[in-house]
Structure formats: C-alpha cells, structure tokens
C-alpha cells in the first residue's frame, strides 16, 4: 500500500537525519484542478523555505 510505504519512508528519513518534510504525499483526483494547483503551490513554498538539499547529494564531474 502506497500510503503505508510513504508513512514509513518519511519516518525513516527523519530518523537518519534527512529532512522528512521533503517527502510529501497526498491524493489529488484528475477532476480536482483547483486542489492540484493549491497542492503544488504550497509544496513549492515549503521546499523553497527548506532550501536546496545538502544530504545524500552526489556531485558529478
């Protein structure tokens, strides 16, 4: 079940010290255009507030 996977993943990421707030999970129906816009808007704001990820980053080149 996706929801159980996300619940444990979020909790586990938090536990090892990666910001679990970067893991966002929700349901949006294809008919819910307004809600979709709202979800993306708030999600973008949240991620911007957290700043760029610094953990588990691989530098290539």
């Amino acid at each position: 079940m996706a929801r159980r996977k996300f619940a444990t993943l979020k909790s586990f990421l938090n536990y090892i010290g990666v910001e679990g707030d970067r893991t966002l999970f929700t349901w949006v129906s294809a008919s819910e255009g307004d809600r979709w816009a709202q979800v993306i808007k708030v999600a973008t704001e949240k991620i911007k507030a957290l700043g760029p990820a610094k953990k588990m980053i691989k530098k290539i080149g």
């Binding site: 929801r3 999970f25 929700t26 979800v39 808007k41």
Partner: peptide, 10 residues
C-alpha cells in the same frame, strides 16, 4: 487505525 498525519493536505 492507520494514522493520517503524514498526508500532505494544504
């Protein structure tokens, strides 16, 4: 019984 607080609901 499953908790729902991890779900993102703006």
């Amino acid at each position: 019984h499953d908790k729902e607080e991890f779900i993102f609901n703006p």
